[in-house]
Design a protein around this nucleic acid. Structure first.
Lengths: 140, 140
DNA sequence: ACAAAAATGTAGCCTTGGCTATATCTACAT
DNA sequence: ATGTAGATATAGCCAAGGCTACATTTTTGT
């Protein structure tokens, strides 16, 4: 048969890799938020905000460090690297745009807020551009 | 502070649980497709369509069986139970609606096709209803 | 200054979802 | 009918992302 590009497999592979990076994006976004609010991101705050136990947050931070997205010293707060900041910023923009789009479509605020979190990681640059164009069009 | 409902933690918990069920939904949807096309879903076809190795597909089928979503006998095809069919049907509708919405917004067909796969699992009933209303409104 | 509380670190366990390698079974062809 | 190809099963490995329990370090309060 040879389904070519756009096959089942392609879509699933894309969705899988997005799921894999979704958590890292969430963490960088959150760390950026906490840093903006409190000057630093403490493990305990990360854990509470993510709704997980601190050892899980610690593991995640290890991974962030391993991937070059964050730095930290023992018993101190966590900070983003340049790469981490970039990822957080990209996630922030994406999140806001998805949220705006949902609201523009007529999704109730509460549902939009909840759903945007999951959706944002699966929106390609191309789709994001279309969202932006739609908002511009319908907004003004 | 006590952020109350709609906090970071709530959104992340929701996104996490959606990620967990996303794969099961993908499998039921795919098995339904294959069954419609070929009368049954063979492991090898499932694996190819998902872009994974067969042992991985076999494990997934075990899990589907354990969750009461599918049945199978050794060296034979996989079939959905009532519950599995229901999940597949719901996923199908959801997928189509998300795809239609993306197209209506102006997302190019190829991007819409790819992104819908990831997005569909994070769209709540409420948001889905809003999508439907928007399509009705803008469609005619 | 020192004890108690809070935060962080570490160890060890579980499940999920990937993989490869190997064994067994089914189906097909000659 | 039997050998080979194809499909399925099984074992065992890995990393991620959860958890609890316990150890250590910092911070705080008196």
């Amino acid at each position: 048969m040879g389904e070519g590009p756009g096959s089942h497999a392609d879509r699933f592979l894309k969705a899988r890799s997005e799921r894999a990076s979704a958590l890292l994006e969430d963490y960088t976004e959150l760390i950026a938020d906490l840093t903006a609010e409190h000057g630093e991101a403490r493990l305990v705050d990360i854990a509470r905000a993510m709704g997980i136990a601190h050892p899980t947050a610690a593991k995640a931070v290890s991974r962030l460090k391993r991937e070059g997205l964050a730095t930290s010293r023992p018993y101190r707060g966590v900070f983003l690297t340049e790469a981490g900041e970039a990822m957080a910023e990209k996630a922030r923009i994406r999140h806001q745009l998805v949220l705006d789009l949902l609201l523009a479509i007529g999704v109730p605020a509460e549902a939009a807020d909840l759903d945007a979190e999951g959706i944002e990681h699966h929106v390609s640059d191309e789709t994001l551009a279309a969202f932006e164009a739609f908002l511009k069009r319908s907004g003004g």
